[in-house]
Simulated scan of single mutants.
Amino acid sequence: MADAPPSALLTPTPDDDGAPFWAYTARGELRIQACADPACAELRFPPRPCCPHCRSFDSEWRAMSGQGRIWSYVVPHPPLLPAYAAQAPYNAIVVELADAPRIRLVGNLVASADARLDSVDPDRIRIGAKVQVVFARVDGFALPRWVLERP
């Protein structure tokens, strides 16, 4: 997908805790924050300064396989923002990560990394379908999007 005009599409507003997530996506990597205390080691998303499980402030970023499954989805009618009207109907999916089932990310199911948001027919979307992360460049960010493992 070609870069859209600045501010036309929803893009992240990174904070100190989430900035590493976006730095990794810019390199084509999906990493999730984890507690660095070996007695805990729990993954957490969204990123935050303190582990909600053990209260440690030590963290690290673990590489994920980028595989997951569709946990939920919606096809908004009509588009909620004018910048998305030309791509309607599009989808928003919630993906449960294969290597971290308690971690769920929101994105779009697309035919390829550079495809439009409406590139997958909404009738083809199924809860439980296996997906793989891809990264689309939008307004200077590499946004995680998802493609079906078996299109």
Rank of each mutant, 00 (worst) to 15 (best):
L143V: 06
Q87S: 13
P46C: 14
T11A: 13
A19T: 08
Q87W: 11
R104A: 12
R116W: 11
K130E: 11
Y73A: 02
S72P: 09
D37E: 15
V95F: 10
P78N: 02
C51S: 05
S7Y: 11
H77V: 09
I125W: 00
A4K: 07
L81W: 08
T11K: 05
A8R: 04
A142T: 03
R62H: 07
L143W: 00
A92T: 15
V138K: 04
I103P: 00
R104N: 12
M1D: 04
Q132W: 06
L109D: 01
Y90R: 07
A36F: 05
A19G: 12
L143C: 01
V133G: 04
I103V: 14
Y90W: 12
A39V: 09
G66Q: 09
E149S: 04
L105C: 12
L105K: 08
D58S: 15
Q87C: 14
A26V: 12
P49G: 15
A129N: 02
V131K: 01
V106I: 14
W22T: 04
I70M: 05
A111F: 01
D58R: 14
D118P: 11
W61V: 11
R44P: 11
L148N: 02
P47A: 15
I32C: 05
A136D: 13
A113K: 00
Q87E: 15
R116F: 11
F135V: 03
F21T: 10
I125D: 01
R137Y: 04
W22Q: 02
V75R: 00
N91P: 09
S112T: 07
P6W: 02
S65L: 06
V94L: 15
D99Q: 01
L81H: 13
P47R: 05
L30E: 03
G107T: 11
C50H: 13
S112I: 03
A129Y: 00
R126E: 14
L43I: 10
E96K: 08
C51D: 01
V74L: 08
V120M: 02
W71D: 15
D15N: 09
P49H: 06
D121F: 00
D16N: 13
P151G: 12
A83M: 08
N108D: 06
Q33M: 15
